[in-house]
Design a binder for these strands. Structure first.
Length: 941
RNA sequence: GCGGGGGUCGCCCAGCCUGGUCAACGGCGCGAGGCUUAGGACCUCGUCCCUCAGGGGUUCGUGGGUUCGAAUCCCACCCCCCGCACCA
């Protein structure tokens, strides 16, 4: 860490500048960012999101707000525990990620088998990184989400939510890992990401007194069934299921148990024992042979399927496997298979009568285990679903579309009593631990009832009343609120807070982080050891956060002084509500909306969040950041490579709105060069400056500063960090450069005033450099505590601005001409328009359309310029024209004459400015009379 | 599929809400010149096409439409990104 950064960090620290306490009468600003999850060190994505709040915090502080920017660490949940576990089991990829991507030393990794150690290590590293980056955080309020006091807070929150009826119990199917004994979300899966439970139809085929139970998603094909498939190698069972006798795979039986069916096994048998027997189909009454299907997965649904070879590539192929000898079969079984012909039951344009045959030909599968059959099935099914119509072969389903027939067939089957349902995964799902998952019905789970219309309405109100930056994000919140249903808010495993009334469960991590911002007001006291976990009873917290109850009695009950208790309350009411919460857009559909829901439920309107800031995701060198591809940059890595200020500036300049931010080394290097050259530039400029009276250029620069300050202020208030930082850092710099270039002899007093404002404008972005520069310019005080630049110090001067515009327009026009004109030219004649022409322009621009006639009458001499003048009025634009009309004192001729030397230098020719209508005019080509206001005539010779 | 956001002159991106000031801001890259012992950095200019007078032509995903006038408004279509839940 460079000395400059170390020095100023220490100064900020010693002066406690970022440790705000309630100050009566001072306006406050409470800004937050979601705490990062400590299964990894913070990375540039975290930095991007958090830096937006950091810039905003520093900006608001300079605007005079008492700003609180706290920080904490997210430890709760399954992920950290899961990673520890995987490491313990010797998973090489986790270890590699720790060492190679996160940069953890080997001897530390060894200790990561303890999840709390893992999290504490990353917390330690990340905290230091944030400090080194110069974040203006009040570290006195730091906490981890497994702290006993935090748990007290969450317990209290859930007790109250439950009392309000927002926590309900329910029974739902989940993707389940029997090894972890826990639901398996996408993040926990090795295979089958995105797969969710679906309901399969179980169709019972009579097999003696038993039912051979086949599973299908396509009951509408029942009329095309020619046979049944079982896997000859797999275990099957005869069992009593919900009072009936079923034959299903052994695996199916355990899963049926998990789905709350009543199950008693009778005897097991091998799949092969079923081969060659016949089972009777419902609806059709056909007797269908049971054949060996090697593709049948006993772990999926019932391990029995029925065969529709006309429409299912798998079935047709499996049949051919037997017929062509690829599947071993006894003679009797083979004869049965040989006799089977596909039975088409729907017509499909673009296919022959047996679509599965076409499909097989197209995809060229070699046997029924060929993986291409997956694709073939999906494609054929999609076509059939969208375009297929059931034929007469389907009896009562004839004429229906596949979608309609699906429903109708299920109804018909249900009527015969030969339909049951079973939850199943449409694709194989494997847990990170390597265990195959299935669907389990979880009973008596706890849910947050986001379905409640009243709650939804209130949450919507929270968003409606808050600022949302950028405004496009608002719609996303509304649709999320509409769309949210019951959210399972408790889990069996992982770190976290136990559900206070049901200690078997742990509050799920997205649900324990919804109102914790309130806890920052308390954590200060906890860290100062002024409050213990035991004191944070629900009653005490009711008082602190709701103002409920009698503080005298409560303080006695929890053995805390009443004064202290009231202090906690004061701290909360001072800081709340949250004024700005910023996060990446991916959190809109969950965390940020939950945050709105929970505040709506628990707090009165005046404590609802006031502002939401949303940013895009981070990309690295134009590609998605990803640990698996190694396209990953840690915050620490970037910080050490470029230094705090360049890192911050590069982040600020990356992106605005919900656009994805692209982290590129080049940009960071560029930012470093820029940051490093500010102070030398300022020093050099001041050295070259002179003490003198103000001229029009000084007025121009001061006026331009006014506009920059306004622009930056506005952008910051709208969380347009990129725009703000670009204007503050780069555009202002260019303005100053232009002034120096244009003026030749910059005025010292002007530069001093401008630099003084500039250093304050860039301070939120590059605070270390700014402190250093401020120290050199002012010699004392801290720029982070200085006032934000005031517009009043930089008067607008429209005439000075117009003068610069006039000069630049001439230079631009002349360049155009010089570019086109061949031959060497020595002298540029600039003819400013006559007063008459100016009067005509003014009258024409201010006249309304109908009175143009009288204007032209008044200005006989300028009449033939009417069209060109109108065109010019359009070209200049309303704003400039208005300015021109009001600026009576503006002297175009004087301005351009004064700038003649400058223009000459820029253009490389002598510039002579004259005014049309003056006597002694030198006008060899007769162009002078064509001059218009802000558009002098030019003549090169 | 559903929901949200986008597609702009080599690249990144501003403009779009509130139509004309838009060949379209800014940055990067590239080219020329300056500065410098040299390089880097820095400064200036140029960077869609044509043009010996400040002009003209063709552009803002595609195709239509509204309008005197559309990057901006309307309709349809194509493409990209994000989210879609027992998980941070």
């Amino acid at each position: 860490m460079p000395d400059r950064e170390k020095y100023w960090t220490k100064v900020w620290d010693e002066k406690h500048v970022f440790e705000p306490d309630p100050l009566t009468g001072k306006k406050k600003m409470f800004v937050t960012v979601p705490y990062p999850y400590m299964n990894a060190p913070v990375h540039v994505g975290t930095a991007f999101t958090a830096s937006r709040v950091e810039f905003y915090a520093r900006f608001r502080r300079m605007q005079g707000y008492n700003v609180l920017f706290p920080w904490a660490w997210h430890w709760t949940g399954q992920t950290i525990v899961g990673m520890s576990l995987r490491l313990k089991k010797g998973d090489a990829s986790v270890r590699r990620a720790f060492v190679e991507l996160d940069g953890v030393p080997e001897k530390e990794v060894a200790k990561f088998v303890d999840p709390e150690y893992l999290a504490s290590y990353y917390t330690k590293v990340s905290r230091q990184v944030l400090k080194d980056t110069g974040f203006s955080i009040d570290w006195r309020r730091e906490f981890r989400t497994i702290d006993p006091t935090y748990k007290k807070f969450v317990e209290w929150q859930y007790l109250r939510l439950r009392e309000l009826g927002y926590v309900v119990q329910g029974t739902h199917p989940v993707v389940w890992c029997p090894y972890d004994r826990s639901p398996t979300g996408d993040a926990d899966r090795m295979e089958g990401v995105g797969v969710s439970p679906g309901e399969f139809n179980l169709i019972k085929f009579h097999l003696g007194e038993f039912a051979l139970v086949a599973a299908t998603l396509r009951p509408e094909t029942i009329y095309g069934a020619t046979n049944l498939w079982v896997n000859p190698e797999s275990e099957y069972v005869e069992a009593r299921v919900d009072g009936e006798l079923w034959v299903v795979s052994a695996s199916a039986l355990t899963r049926l148990t998990e789905q709350k069916h009543e199950v008693t096994p009778v005897r097991s048998l091998k799949g092969s024992e079923l081969l060659g027997r016949f089972a009777m189909a419902p609806l059709t009454g056909k007797s269908l042979p049971i054949l060996p299907g090697r593709f049948v997965d006993a772990e999926l649904a019932t391990g029995v399927v029925y065969s529709v070879p006309a429409h299912a590539p798998f079935d047709l192929m499996a049949l051919k496997d037997i017929q062509e000898g690829r599947t071993q079969a006894g003679r009797q079984v083979k004869e049965l298979a040989d006799a089977i012909r596909p039975v088409p039951i729907l017509s499909l344009k673009g296919y022959s009568a047996v679509p599965a045959e076409d499909s097989l030909r197209k995809h060229g599968a070699k046997d029924s285990l060929d993986s291409s059959l997956e694709r073939a099935s999906a494609e054929l099914y999609s076509d059939e679903f969208h375009r297929g119509v059931l034929t007469a072969a389907s009896g009562p389903l004839a004429g229906l579309t596949v979608g309609e027939a699906k429903q109708k067939s299920a109804e018909l089957l249900a009527k015969t009593g030969r339909l049951a349902k079973m939850w199943e995964l449409t694709e194989k799902v494997v847990c990170r631990c390597g265990t195959r998952c299935y669907v389990k019905i979880l009973e008596n789970q706890w849910f947050l009832n986001y379905s409640s219309p009243q709650w939804k309405a209130k949450a919507k109100e929270v968003i409606e009343k808050a600022d949302v930056f950028p405004p496009e994000a608002r719609e996303w919140f509304y649709s999320t609120i509409e769309w949210l249903k019951e959210w399972p808010c408790a889990r069996r495993s992982g770190m976290g807070t136990k559900v206070p009334w049901d200690k078997e469960w742990i509050v799920e991590t997205l649900s324990d982080s919804t109102i914790y911002m309130a806890y920052y007001t308390l954590s200060k006291f906890v860290n100062q050891e002024k409050v213990t976990p035991e004191q944070l009873t629900p009653d005490a917290l009711d008082y602190v956060f709701f103002g409920k109850g009698n503080p005298a009695n409560i303080s006695k009950a929890v053995r805390m002084t009443e004064k202290r208790l009231r202090e906690l309350r004061t701290e909360f009411t001072y800081w709340y509500p949250v004024d700005m919460r910023n996060s990446a857009k991916e959190l809109i559909p969950n965390h940020l909306t939950f945050f709105a829901f929970h505040h709506a439920a628990l707090f009165p309107e005046k404590q609802w969040p006031r502002g939401f800031g949303i940013n895009g995701m981070i990309q690295i060198e134009g590609k998605k950041m990803s640990k698996t591809t190694g396209n990953f940059v840690t915050w620490k890595g970037a910080l050490e490579k470029y230094g705090a200020d360049p890192f911050r500036l590069a982040l600020a300049l990356t992106a605005d709105g919900m656009d994805d931010a692209d982290w590129r080394d080049r940009n960071a290097e560029d930012a470093k060069v820029k940051v490093d050259s500010v102070i030398p530039f300022v020093k050099k400029s001041l050295r070259s400056s002179v003490k003198r009276e103000k001229d029009v250029l000084d007025d121009w620069l001061l006026s331009t500063m006014n506009r920059r300050i306004a622009q930056v202020t506005q952008a910051m208030q709208e969380m347009k960090i990129r725009r703000a930082s670009a204007a503050a850092f780069l555009d202002t710099w260019n303005d100053i450069r232009w002034y120096i270039h244009r003026s030749g002899k910059p005025r010292r007093q002007t530069l001093e005033a401008v630099f003084d404002a500039w250093v304050r404008m860039v301070a939120p972005f590059t605070p270390f450099m700014a402190e250093g520069l401020n120290h050199e310019l002012r010699g004392k005080g801290l720029v982070c505590q200085a006032d934000w630049p005031s517009l009043r110090d930089f008067p607008l001067d429209e005439e000075a601005e117009m003068a610069e515009t006039a000069v630049n327009r001439v230079v631009e026009d002349a360049r155009n001409v010089l570019k086109v004109v061949k031959g060497s030219k020595k002298r540029l004649n600039v003819y400013v328009c006559s007063d008459g022409s100016r009067g005509f322009f003014v009258d024409l621009a201010s006249a309304d359309r109908l009175k143009i006639g009288s204007v032209t009458k008044k200005h006989e001499a300028s009449k033939d310029k009417t069209n060109r003048t109108f065109k010019l009025i359009y070209e200049l634009g309303d704003e400039l024209v208005k300015k021109y009309i009001t600026a009576r004192k503006f002297d175009e001729y004087g301005t351009l004459s004064d700038a003649a030397k400058f223009m000459g230098k820029e253009l490389g020719v002598d510039v002579v400015v004259q005014k049309d209508g003056e006597k002694g005019l030198r006008d060899p080509s007769g162009r002078a009379k064509g001059a218009l206001p802000m558009k002098p005539a030019l003549y090169l010779e």
